[in-house]
């Protein structure tokens, strides 16, 4: 057979699919996606809580905290208006020209460093990400959430099982200083003459 043997048509239907993207913070609230393995993490609100509830040393807990703070600067959900941020997270601060939620705590996962001395195995943090308490309406209210909207669970549990997807590095959010530097050449070509008026106007070939 020279053709694709099977296509899952249900994946190709577009009736319910909109081209427009939802706002960032809601677009990615997807929960755990199927198929990927889970990992155990802890949610801590301070370095001292980290040292008492995990096997990590104080300096590892401090390093994990600093990593989470750094990560928050790059990945925290950003809002143009403070009220929008407050609606979803309750406590917000200004960061540059945006508003971002206060980091409620951080989630850490541990790994035993086998590379070192076999008799003195060290616990190190594998992941450390900022976490926020969602306080908007709906079923995610009062749940712990990562920067990109993965829901970890309700506060107060000893540990949480989360999907590997939730622990992937988060996309970096930055500050855009200009827009519109691409597209002018296409626009100049499509303004050419009149015959393009009957064309589809795309730039494919």
């Amino acid at each position: 057979m020279k053709r694709t043997s099977f296509l899952d048509l249900s994946l190709m239907r577009k009736h319910s699919r909109a081209f427009a993207l939802a706002p960032l913070s809601l677009a990615v609230i997807s929960g755990c996606s199927s198929g990927s393995q889970d990992e155990q993490v802890k949610f801590v609100t301070s370095v001292s809580e980290c040292t008492t509830t995990t096997s990590l040393t104080e300096s590892e807990c401090q390093a994990a905290y600093e990593q989470a703070v750094l990560d928050a600067e790059a990945t925290a959900p950003r809002y143009q208006y403070e009220r929008d941020c407050l609606t979803e997270f309750g406590n917000c601060e200004r960061q540059g020209s945006f508003f971002v939620p206060f980091m409620t705590g951080y989630i850490v996962s541990e790994i035993i460093d086998e590379v070192g001395d076999a008799f003195e195995r060290k616990h190190r943090y594998k992941h450390s990400y900022p976490a926020y308490l969602y306080s908007g309406s709906g079923s995610y209210r009062n749940k712990i959430m990562t920067s990109d909207g993965h829901v970890i669970g309700s506060p107060g549990q000893r540990s949480y099982r989360v999907s590997r997807d939730a622990l992937k590095p988060k996309p970096k959010v930055t500050r855009t200083i200009s827009r519109g530097g691409f597209g002018a050449t296409a626009s100049a070509k499509s303004n050419w003459g009149s015959s393009k008026s009957s064309s589809k106007g795309g730039w494919g070939g």
């Binding site: 081209f19 993207l21 960032l24 950003r78 996309p171 970096k172 959010v173 930055t174 500050r175 855009t176 200083i177 200009s178 827009r179 519109g180 530097g181 691409f182 597209g183 296409a186």
Partner: peptide, 23 residues
């Protein structure tokens, strides 16, 4: 994720950004 060509921006490190300021 989707972004229109005309909506692409840059940050101060010359990284390209989408409409939500993601790198």
């Amino acid at each position: 994720k989707f972004v229109y060509i005309e909506d692409i921006g840059i940050d101060q490190d010359n990284q390209f950004t989408d409409i939500d300021n993601l790198v």
